[in-house]
Amino acid sequence: MTSPEALHAALVARLRTIASLQVFEFQVPDKPAADGQGRVYPYAIVWPGAGTPGAESSITGAAGERWAATVNVAAGDPAWVLPATRLVRATLSMVELAPGVTLTEVPLGAVITKDPDTTPLRWFLPTQWAALTP
């Protein structure tokens, strides 16, 4: 079994291959990079899960432990969120994080939402990812 820590590190490493995207773990710094108008450049923030033991996965039908992570994509301009989300999806979808551990997106049906708790203002779109570890 691959540890949740190793899967998290592999996911973050994959996201960091996107040159136009800031990647944070667990929290966003007080002042993420922004343009001259104060709009925060696109970023992804990753929150990993600890894994869930289970008999059979609804994703593959095989036995193992299900691991999941949330990746929120955010930016200071709502028009920047969708292109950044496409980059995240292209980078993470069906990637092998470890031998025999393939990542897949869990459909959420989420929409871009204004974050009322951030200054400067930001919009975000949550995505959920899961993998079955052997």
Rank of each mutant, 00 (worst) to 15 (best):
A13G: 13
A62H: 03
M94T: 02
T102D: 04
F26G: 03
P120R: 13
Q37N: 14
L11Q: 02
V28H: 12
R122G: 00
Q128N: 07
V95K: 08
V95R: 14
A90E: 10
P99N: 07
N72I: 01
S57L: 08
I18E: 05
L132R: 06
G36D: 00
L87F: 11
A68Q: 14
L21F: 14
V106F: 04
V111T: 12
V95Y: 09
A98R: 12
P42I: 08
A50C: 03
R39D: 09
L125W: 00
P126R: 02
A34R: 15
V88Y: 02
P78D: 00
T52G: 08
V101E: 03
H8K: 10
F24N: 09
D77G: 04
Y41L: 10
I18P: 01
L21I: 12
T60R: 11
P83Y: 15
T127V: 04
V95G: 00
P116F: 02
A50T: 09
Q27A: 08
T91I: 01
L82K: 05
W123I: 07
P116M: 00
A19Q: 15
T70M: 10
E25M: 07
T133A: 15
A69F: 02
L121K: 01
F24R: 00
T118D: 12
R122L: 08
A9G: 12
T104E: 01
Q128P: 11
D115H: 02
G54F: 11
S58D: 15
I59R: 07
W80V: 00
E25Y: 04
Q37A: 14
Q22E: 14
G61R: 02
K114S: 03
A63G: 11
V101P: 06
T133W: 07
S57V: 03
A79C: 01
E65H: 08
M94Q: 10
R39G: 10
W80K: 02
P99Q: 06
A62L: 15
L121C: 14
I18Y: 03
G51V: 06
G49Y: 06
L121H: 08
V95Q: 14
L15Y: 15
L132A: 09
V101A: 14
V28M: 10
A90Y: 05
E105C: 06
D77W: 10
A19G: 11
R89F: 12
R16P: 00
D35E: 03
A110L: 05
V73R: 00
G54K: 07
L11N: 08
E25A: 14
G64I: 05
G36T: 11
I18F: 06
S57P: 08
V23E: 00
S3P: 15
F24G: 01
L103T: 04
N72Q: 08
A75R: 12
P120E: 12
G64H: 06
W129V: 02
G100K: 13
P99V: 03
G61T: 14
E105Y: 03
L132M: 10
V81M: 09
E105F: 00
W47V: 05
G109S: 08
T104S: 07
G54P: 00
L15M: 09
P78T: 07
S93P: 00
W123C: 09
A74Q: 06
V12R: 03
W67C: 06
R122A: 12
A74L: 03
A90H: 04
T113V: 12
V73Y: 02
A34C: 13
A44W: 03
Q27L: 05
P48F: 12
A75P: 11
A74C: 02
H8L: 04
Q37I: 08
R122Q: 11
A110P: 07
T70A: 05
M94P: 00
T2D: 11
G54L: 10
